[in-house]
């Protein structure tokens, strides 16, 4: 361990603001990217499922109309 104490570690030899700003922004933007990437697959599957349900409804409407005439 390079630092004497925890407060020494957080102080980063006087460069705390710059070091923690760099690390903070890096890992929060990575977190957003990971979250958004993982969510994408479910979003796509949901859209396809909705499209399928809509097609199913249209098909049923059509057959209903045909049976009336």
């Amino acid at each position: 361990m390079q630092f004497e104490s925890i407060s020494d570690f957080f102080n980063m030899g006087g460069y705390a603001f710059y070091v923690w700003l760099a690390y903070g922004v890096t890992f929060s933007s990575l977190a957003v990217l990971v979250f958004q990437s993982v969510k994408q697959k479910n979003k796509v599957l949901k859209q396809i499922a909705q499209k399928l349900a809509r097609e199913e409804r249209l098909k049923q409407n059509r057959s209903n109309n045909e049976s009336k005439t």
Partner: peptide, 19 residues
């Protein structure tokens, strides 16, 4: 962040290098 030695010129600011 914790174990690499401090740089003799740049102090601890150089730790940004690791990202």
């Amino acid at each position: 962040l914790m174990f690499a030695p401090t740089d003799y010129q740049q102090g601890d600011s150089y730790r940004i290098i690791f990202i």
